[in-house]
Design a protein around this nucleic acid. Structure first.
Length: 468
RNA sequence: GGAGAGGUGGCAGAGCGGUUGAAUGCGGCGGUCUUGAAAACCGCUUUACCCGCAAGGGUAACGGGGGUUCGAAUCCCUCCCUCUCCGCCA
């Protein structure tokens, strides 16, 4: 089995799907969370969609840098096998039910001999049923395991492409800062002003765990409060979720099995530290059928985020550019399909508003098919310009997952006809803190100190970061 | 961590191993009645998969998994969870 996708999210290659075949998932050898998932009748792409819109699915999936045709053809075959097996089993079970019912009636009527006869026939049926059940289980397993390997189908407007080079810049705003010669990167500023320390983090934990201090800590807290307030004003309900989730939750939003190696795993209790608030907040709606009036659902949550980032190294990870623990405010929406595109644009506009309030130059990227996350149908990345490093830093990723997550979540809503159907889920960072801090510090450094944007001053209580 | 009780439909709450997908009550929806509303009365009211243009039909599900049986919500095993009491504790 080849790993079908090499996105940036798979730097570790630790996915059991991509590793070396199926050993990890077989029978009783599968870890508990995989067994739990095997029992879940839902997979990722909706088989009904694949069956009813084969051409559209193929067109969309072809944007990815994968063998879309082969994957879909195999899925169609496995789906067909599953359905025919289920038909056969259902017929056998119906026959068995007839026997069982008539035996009961015959017993009541005192016709013992006839009852015995029927019982003998029923006993014969049992073997065939057991065998057919095994076949169905095997067919379902084969189908689901295959579906797990197929990423979400990109929307029409997503550009085809393989690498970040193929992403499209769809908007840019703000002047790039012209810093004086000798402008310092944020990690040097942090030392100079006592804002955060990675060395102390090493002592306490290990590399990539910053300790914020003094005005640095206050700035962090101010940004969190600012982002939460802005989201609340925009109609998002605030949530403070658990920071540890169980395997069911990690599966439902797609972190497992695809990104297993990216999460910290508390093995004693089989819990995972969340890599993003998306996981607990979206899972609030697992196994839920929302009434039509309940949509749209808009939630916002601040949480620390934990990412192992195994395999990352080099200059990209200096300072706050890439750390194992960072703060993030996340917005999550649940929408009916016809409104999810508009919701994505609203979320993007919200994020732009935040960046403009912080006076940070930014650009908006429409990710190409090859660079998008596994579960996304369309993704915008927002990047801010970090003046001293002279590079763009990703501070937000805003995605529409359409029904890909909701199919696993079993998250549905009732349409006008009262029938349950899969909702669309979306989420986006609004915003990720660490890199915002990096850009703020670098872009606003002056000989007198580091200037705090006006919008943030009510939250920090100071307008300038100064040396002690 | 120790001891006990329990997990059934939106909620509450029944259920001798045999038309029990599941009594009853509440809630919800529709209707009758009414100038309107309430009350009363009548009917309806889970989800998934499969077959079918549809009407309709089949199968599955009573915390999860497994077992006994012709047949299990009802019996057995196991796991999970919840509640109560004790201990510990921000």
């Amino acid at each position: 089995m080849n790993c079908p996708v090499k996105g940036k999210a798979w730097a570790t290659g630790a996915s059991p799907l991509c590793a070396s075949g199926k050993g990890a998932r077989q029978g009783t050898r599968a870890p508990p969370y995989l067994r739990a998932f095997l029992s879940n009748p839902h997979s990722m792409l909706d088989t009904a969609y694949l069956r009813n819109h084969p051409e559209e699915a193929l067109n969309r999936l072809s944007k990815r840098n994968i063998d879309a045709e082969g994957l879909l053809a195999k899925a169609a075959g496995l789906d067909e096998k599953r359905r025919s097996t289920q038909n056969a089993l259902d017929a056998l079970l119906a026959e068995m039910n007839d026997h069982a019912r008539s035996i009961g009636e015959l017993m009541k009527a005192g016709k013992k001999a006839e009852a015995e006869e029927a019982r003998a026939r029923a006993t014969e049926l049992k073997e065939g049923i057991a065998a057919m059940k095994d076949q169905l289980a095997a067919a379902e397993k084969a189908l689901h395991e295959h579906l797990w390997t197929i990423p979400n189908t990109p929307q029409e407007r997503v550009p085809a492409g393989k690498t970040p080079e193929d992403n499209q810049v769809v908007a840019q705003h703000g002047e790039l800062p012209r810093l004086a010669a000798g402008a310092k990167p944020h990690w040097e500023l942090a030392e100079e002003y006592g804002l955060f320390s990675l060395e102390l983090g090493v002592k306490l934990t290990g590399a990539g765990f910053p300790v914020y201090t003094g005005q640095g800590a206050k700035l962090e807290r101010a940004l969190i409060a600012f982002f939460l307030d802005r989201a609340t004003e925009a109609g998002y309900m605030e949530v403070i979720p658990p920071l540890l989730v169980n395997a069911d939750s990690a599966f439902a939003t797609g972190q497992l099995p695809d990104k297993e190696g990216q999460m910290y795993h508390a093995t004693a209790d089989d819990l995972f530290l969340i890599p993003t608030a998306e996981v607990p907040i979206t899972n609030l709606f697992r196994d839920v059928i929302l009434e039509a009036g309940a949509l749209p659902v808009k939630r916002v949550g601040y949480t620390p985020c934990f990412r192992r980032e195994a395999g990352s190294y080099g200059k990209d990870v200096r300072g706050l550019n890439r750390v194992h623990q960072f703060d993030k405010v996340e917005i999550v929406r649940i929408e009916p399909p016809e409104r999810s595109d508009a919701a994505l644009e609203e979320m993007t506009a919200h994020v732009k508003g935040l960046l403009e309030a912080l006076e940070l130059p930014y650009r908006q990227l429409l990710l190409c098919g090859g660079d998008m996350g596994f579960t996304s149908a369309i993704t915008y990345d927002m990047e801010v310009y970090s003046g001293a490093q002279q590079r763009w830093l990703e501070v937000s990723s805003i995605s529409n997952f359409e029904t890909y997550q909701s199919n696993r979540l079993k998250l549905r809503y009732r349409g006008e006809d009262k029938k349950p159907r899969l909702a669309h889920t979306l989420n986006g960072s609004a915003l990720a803190l660490a890199r915002i801090v990096a850009a703020l510090l670098e872009n606003n450094q002056t000989p007198q100190g580091i200037r705090i944007p006006n919008a943030l001053q009510p939250y920090t209580g100071f307008g300038m970061i100064v040396k002690k």
